[in-house]
Amino acid sequence: MMKSFFRTYMPFAKAGTQQMMAYKVNFIFHLIGEIMSCFIMFFIWKAVFTSTDGKTFMGFTMNDMIVYIFISFMTGYLSYSDGAFVLGEEIRDGSVSMRLIKPCSFDMCFLFQEIGNRVISYGIIFVPIVAGVEIYRYFLMGSVQFNVGNFIMFFISLQFAYLINFYFNIIYGFLAFYLKNLWGTTLIKDVIVNFLSGATIPLAFMPFALQTFLTYLPFSSLSYTPVMIYMGMYTWDKILFSMALQIFWIFAFWGISKLIWRSAIRRICVQGG
């Protein structure tokens, strides 16, 4: 069972890796462009901390802020998923019929292709950023700040965040094909998700009621949860609770995406071909 599952889907992962290798120069240029915003944030926070009297800003030290900026950037980048956007287009132009005749499930094809992709992006992003942050913290604090337990939980939580994002974006992909303009709607979606997930502004800076409310929405599971775990801001109770919440959202979005897929397929009518 397990063996045939992997025999079916491993080629997709391999194709994903090859695709990524072919475009790795583009990927690196894109990454440099995106990481610029982290450095802007870094300098803004440095200026903020030289302009305040205290050592902390709403409970965060400079050290915390640096970890927050870079780890939340990395989390956002590594949990991003857009592999399934083509699905809406395929349903519209009928080429989805090719998926229906293949003996594999639609979400697993996308998932494995993206996993193949991500092998490369982990190599390019994960190691340099984690190493950079830890070396910086070491020189700032004079001692090793790295916590293996937190790091392992962070890594698992990051994978959960990716899966939530994956199924969330499959659902968005279905929606987007009704909304047509992908550039505009995707921009709006990304901006709002980044805001609600705490990637733009740490949720801890928001009013308490809003903060509590956002913790229960699926978005905080995408970025805030893993980052807080990495930073050691959560107790073990809280880590387990928020990871349970992540698992809940994975199943919720997985279920919804399956439902939409089924009803879309029932209604579809592919002409000719």
Partner: peptide, 17 residues
Amino acid sequence: LDFTMGALGLFISQVIQ
């Protein structure tokens, strides 16, 4: 709709900044 969506997206991202 295309126009409104793109402009709105850029606008919201500035508001959040």
